[in-house]
Design a protein around this nucleic acid. Structure first.
Lengths: 184, 184
DNA sequence: GTCTATACACCGATAGAC
DNA sequence: GTCTATCGGTGTATAGAC
């Protein structure tokens, strides 16, 4: 078991239980590694594990979800590609978002800067698509924020209602909401 | 210190730290009560404290936020009243939502049913306003869900960006989003 | 109704063998 | 690189005095 493999397991634990709830016991069980082995891969302990998770997810998000937004496809198609990846990433809305989770408790103090940066990266990438579609920078920023709001809110509702439909519907609506008024 | 007073303090702790992060030490400090005293008011311990918090918030939500939706004001005004109460309740978006927090970790297993019920109560109350405004039941339900999505998502973004503007803007937009197409 | 004192499990973390 | 064993601290919970 190398570190990247371990990190993938860690992601699941932190997403399900949050920072405080992600105990070394649960992490040990999820990875199959003993506690001492975990400290071989992450000498600074749980805090480093969470940081590694955040970095891994940040890169995955950048390469898998935001990359389609910068492709040569037409704008609407780029948004649809992002939506498809989001559906996969969040398991149709059943898995929580680390960015939301890490704004709670201790992890907020530790990782607020990274969370802020990742949210802005997402918003900026979305806004760029709209600017290319002829929307003003100011309007593009507002619509991009609204899109992130809708995805995050849909995650909460889908998990709370135990029904993936709100999340699916929100993803379907994204291209329309973002590019309304553009020549499509 | 009687139990209702204690519960009000508990709400803050659970909202800030989540279920697992709300330790008896923090609760003891926040309430000024020793751990043993807490067990006088809540014999079943932390689980009962969280349940009391959820019930208290549920009643407060019902009486303070949903009540205006059933008033005799015109629909748009009812939505505006709800938005004002929401702004107060969530401290302009700086305080997290217990319903979102309790869908994580252990607390999800314990309180999923209550969270589900409270979200549905909110959605139903919103939908009722729209039905009275001439919107079909089906459409009303969809718009109501969207409103909850937007409030929850705006909370995540406002907290993540450390900027209350997205939350404020979302609340301002609610009447328009919900009653678009109605004679206002 | 609140306290001090305490029980016992689990927490994050470390030592050292293999 | 993984393990067993263990540390000091903290977690939830309880006993019993006042």
């Amino acid at each position: 078991m190398d570190r990247p493999q371990a990190v993938e397991k860690l992601v699941k634990v932190f997403r399900q239980y949050g920072y405080e709830g992600a105990t070394l016991s649960r992490i040990s069980q999820a990875t199959g590694l003993g506690k001492a082995s975990l400290y071989h891969h992450f000498p600074n302990g749980k805090q480093e594990m969470a940081a590694a998770v955040l970095q891994y997810v940040g890169e995955w998000f950048e390469n898998t979800i935001l990359m389609p937004l910068r492709s040569q496809e037409e704008p609407a198609q780029r948004i649809r590609l992002m939506s498809d990846r989001l559906r996969q990433f969040y398991d149709c809305g059943r898995s929580a978002c680390l960015l939301a989770i890490f704004t709670l408790g201790e992890s907020d103090d530790l990782f607020h800067a990274q969370v802020n940066q990742m949210l802005n990266a997402w918003i900026d990438s979305l806004a760029e698509v709209m600017v290319e579609s002829g929307i003003s920078a100011k309007q593009a920023r507002l619509r991009a924020e609204d899109a992130v709001i809708q995805v995050q809110g849909a995650l909460v509702l889908t998990r709370g209602l135990d029904d993936t439909e709100p999340f699916e519907r929100t993803l379907r609506q994204l291209p329309v909401n973002l590019l309304e008024g553009c020549h499509l």
